[in-house]
Design a protein around this nucleic acid. Structure first.
Lengths: 142, 142
DNA sequence: AAGCATATACAAATAGTTTGCTCTTAAAAC
DNA sequence: GTTTTAAGAGCAAACTATTTGTATATGCTT
């Protein structure tokens, strides 16, 4: 889905759900929808602070939290003490590089033993995390 | 594997790897090995501060970090801005309750499309995260 | 038993995130 | 289009999670 369409869908969905479409929110959403590196609030703010006048780190935090609450973005599981977000909300998985820490998207939905999962609770979705060394880092090892 | 044996293995492995076995480290390891709720440093400290004289939060942080570096404990992926640890280092997966946030162990190793993963890098291990509502929370919903 | 490298406690620094309050603005109602 | 108003934004300050500096203490090799 291209950016244009994602943004239109964003506007429509946000308004339907009672979220005002402000320039700041639009900017945050566009920024995150264009990136595939699952940025943190801080990183998004760094990208936007010079481009968008009148945007604060607080707003980025609040925006991400609003968008998350209506399902327009979602958090990605990490090993670090920092929250990262993804505008891609369809089921997919991640590859975490153990060397550089980068998180890549992978188009994979894991197969798991349903019985085992259901022994704990009712599953709604399932994602995989693969740990390894990314090609970028492999290249540097030479 | 029972606790006794895990602790012996811990002592042996730690010393081999150049980590001194101190009362604090032993206490932290025992505490985390007995729990299955993937505690944070703070939570372990809360559990230990009255039982073990002379243990500080700083030590718990440094201990976890040392143990992690030699593979005696590992971090568990979360959505929060807080690091959680697991003394169970064999491959397994997790179930995260979307209501209470608890993280359960599940004995599952996900099947994923290897080709897709390898397009990003060289995978070393793979784990699944299932999101849903745990039985505990289901029970309360009545 | 002694020596030394490593670990510990404490306090202070840093990083990430949230909150309170006042001012502003998107968008619904007119 | 203007008005109205509930929701959003900015700033500063509070809070929570984690790390670091430094002086003292202690496992463990010899």
């Amino acid at each position: 889905m291209d950016l244009e369409r994602k943004v239109e869908e964003f506007k429509r969905k946000a308004r339907t759900l009672g979220l005002k479409v402000t320039p700041q929110r639009l900017a945050v959403y566009k920024a995150i929808a264009q990136r595939h590196d699952h940025p943190s609030a801080e990183e998004l703010f760094e990208e936007l602070k010079d481009k968008i006048e009148g945007i604060s780190l607080t707003t980025v935090y609040r925006t991400l939290s609003s968008l998350e609450s209506v399902g327009l973005v979602q958090r990605v599981p990490t090993l670090k003490d920092k929250v990262r977000y993804d505008a891609r909300v369809e089921p997919h998985s991640h590859f975490i590089c153990l060397k550089c820490g980068r998180i890549y998207d992978i188009d994979v939905v894991p197969e798991v033993n349903r019985k085992e999962v259901e022994s704990v609770g009712e599953p709604l979705s399932c994602t995989a995390i693969c740990y390894g060394i990314c090609k970028e880092c492999k290249g540097e090892e030479v």
